[in-house]
Nucleic acid binder design. Structure first.
Lengths: 97, 97
DNA sequence: ATGATATTTAGACAAATATCTAAATAATTG
DNA sequence: CAATTATTTAGATATTTGTCTAAATATCAT
């Protein structure tokens, strides 16, 4: 169910996707509202949305003709744990991902 | 001086580089010792070392003909802060990186 | 100095990725 | 239903990236 580390890190590695995350910090927004803030096409943004969804960093909900994107803040905990594990020198079993 | 967010996230986005970080968690190692653990060429690894160094995730020290790689754990704090800022809904000024 | 060992750099190449335009799908409104 | 609006998907393309081989640089040992 939960996305693997590679998916999450790759998702975070693009500046446009991090900016999308930032714009969703305060409130959920429709795809169009997000698109108005970025200088790239809606098709390109849709591509980024897919990657963010794969990483479970955002969730979607259809509201009429709009699709509302929300930040999934619980993933922050996951990423923090991954990073902790990555840098930790303890001997616990790891999935090496 | 400190590397920007993009550099760090890009560095962490590759599984080989994360594995290099993992192998350096317990102790510093020479380039050759690290290379013995990976199925890719030393040239390819050197490329990854450069990226990790650019992100300040590892530090190097020459010891005779060897070059010893060490994990720079202080960056963990930086990355944690970046992530916190990325997901936080507070209003503080951000560099948008 | 010469040869051996350790590591990096240069250049080439295939795969992955971010972007675009055009077309398709989905929901609303007249 | 037809037109409009919102969003995604498909396919193409240029750039980036991870890897390789071959050559260069650096240090050590004889």
């Amino acid at each position: 169910m939960s996305p693997n580390n590679q998916t999450v890190f790759k998702a975070l590695a693009d500046p446009t996707r991090r900016a999308i995350i930032k714009t969703l910090r305060k409130e959920s927004k429709t795809a169009g509202a997000i698109a108005d803030e970025f200088p790239i096409t809606r098709a390109s943004l849709s591509h980024h949305f897919n990657i963010l969804k794969s990483a479970d960093l955002v969730r979607t909900e259809r509201r009429g003709q709009h699709i509302v994107y929300s930040l999934n803040v619980t993933v922050l905990d996951d990423v923090a744990a991954i990073l902790y594990d990555l840098f930790s020198s303890t001997d616990k079993v790891s999935d090496r991902s």
